[in-house]
C-alpha cells in the first residue's frame, strides 16, 4: 500500500494551482524519494515538474514504485472539500492503482472526510532534463517577479530577459509601445527575500512568451523567492522552492527563435 500524509492540505492545493493551467492530467510517480510529476503543456512549449520530498510527509510509505494517473482538475475539486489546515492522506494500491483514497482530518480530530478518486491510465512520455549548469541566474522575490510579468504583459506578448554585468533586465515591445524593467543586485538586510541575487558566468539574452510566464508566476503563492536560470538558446528554468525543504515546482520554457520579431 502506498500512503502519504501531509500535515496541511494547503501545500497540496497550492501545488495543484501551480500546474492546473498547464496540465490536465499527469502521472504522479511515487518512489522512496517522494512524489514527482513531470509534464509538458499541450503545445509542447513549456514543461512543469514538481517534487514533494518523502521527508516532508508526516507519514510516507512506498514499498514499490507506483505511477498514479491523476486528473488534476478532479483532484483539485476533491481538495476544495478540505480546510487549509486539515491534514491530508493519500492512499493507493501499488499493484492496481485504479483509485486513490483521499482522507482529510481536521486539527481537532472531530471531522474525518474520505473520498475515492478514480485514477487514469496515462500514456505519458517522460523527458530527460539534463542537470545543466546555467550560465546566469537571478534570485528575487516571487511577488516582484509576478508583478514584473504582469506589468510587461500590458504592453506586449513576449519578454526579452537579459542578464549582464549591469543586472537583469526585462523588456517588451507591443503595438502601443515598449517597456523595460531593470533590476540591480541588492541585499536587503531586514528582509533577505526582498534582495536580488545575480550570478553570472556569461551574459545571456533570450525572449520568452509572457503568456506562459504569467501562468508560472502564480506559483508565487508557494514561495517567497524565485530563481531564474538561463543559458543561451536554452529553456529558462524558473524554480519555486516550497518552504522548509518540502520540495519544489520548476517550470521550463523554450525560448522564442530570434530574427522574425513581428
Amino acid at each position: 500500500m502506498f500512503e502519504a500524509r501531509l500535515e496541511e492540505s494547503a501545500v497540496l492545493k497550492k501545488i495543484l494551482d501551480s500546474v492546473r493551467d498547464l496540465v490536465q492530467e499527469a502521472n504522479w510517480d511515487c518512489n522512496d524519494d517522494g512524489i514527482v510529476m513531470q509534464s509538458m503543456d499541450s503545445s509542447h512549449i513549456s514543461l512543469v515538474c514538481f517534487m514533494v520530498r518523502a521527508s516532508s510527509f508526516e507519514v510516507y510509505q512506498c514499498e514499490r514504485n507506483v505511477s498514479l494517473g491523476v486528473k488534476i482538475d478532479s483532484l483539485a475539486k476533491v481538495l476544495k472539500c478540505a480546510a487549509s489546515d486539515d491534514s491530508v492522506t493519500l492512499k493507493a494500491d501499488e499493484n492496481e492503482p485504479n483509485t486513490m483514497d483521499i482522507l482529510f482530518e481536521s486539527k481537532k480530530n472531530d471531522r474525518i472526510s474520505d473520498f475515492q478518486l478514480k485514477l487514469m491510465v496515462i500514456d505519458q512520455e517522460m523527458l530527460g532534463i539534463p542537470e545543466s549548469d546555467y550560465t546566469s541566474t537571478v534570485e528575487m522575490s516571487s511577488a516582484e517577479f509576478r508583478r514584473i510579468m504582469g506589468d510587461l504583459s500590458t504592453m506586449g506578448d513576449s519578454v526579452t530577459i537579459e542578464i549582464n554585468k549591469g543586472g537583469a533586465s526585462f523588456s517588451t515591445k507591443g503595438d502601443i509601445g515598449s517597456g523595460n524593467i531593470c533590476l540591480q543586485k541588492s541585499a536587503s538586510v531586514d528582509k533577505p527575500k526582498d534582495g536580488v541575487k545575480i550570478t553570472m558566468v556569461e551574459p545571456v539574452k533570450s525572449t520568452f512568451s509572457l503568456k506562459f510566464l504569467n501562468i508560472f508566476a502564480k506559483a508565487a503563492a508557494l514561495s517567497d523567492t524565485v530563481v531564474l536560470s538561463m543559458s543561451e538558446e536554452y529553456p529558462i528554468r524558473i524554480e519555486f522552492a516550497i518552504d522548509k525543504d518540502v520540495g519544489y515546482v520548476r517550470y521550463y520554457l523554450a525560448p522564442k527563435i530570434e530574427g522574425q520579431e513581428s
Binding site: M40, S43, H44, I45, S46, L47, L127, D157, S158, S209, K211, P235, Y252, L253, A254, P255, K256, I257, G259, Q260, E261, S262
Partner: peptide
C-alpha cells in the same frame, strides 16, 4: 504569436 516559438 507563437509562430517563432521553439519547442521544449
Amino acid at each position: 504569436s507563437e509562430a517563432n516559438q521553439s519547442n521544449i
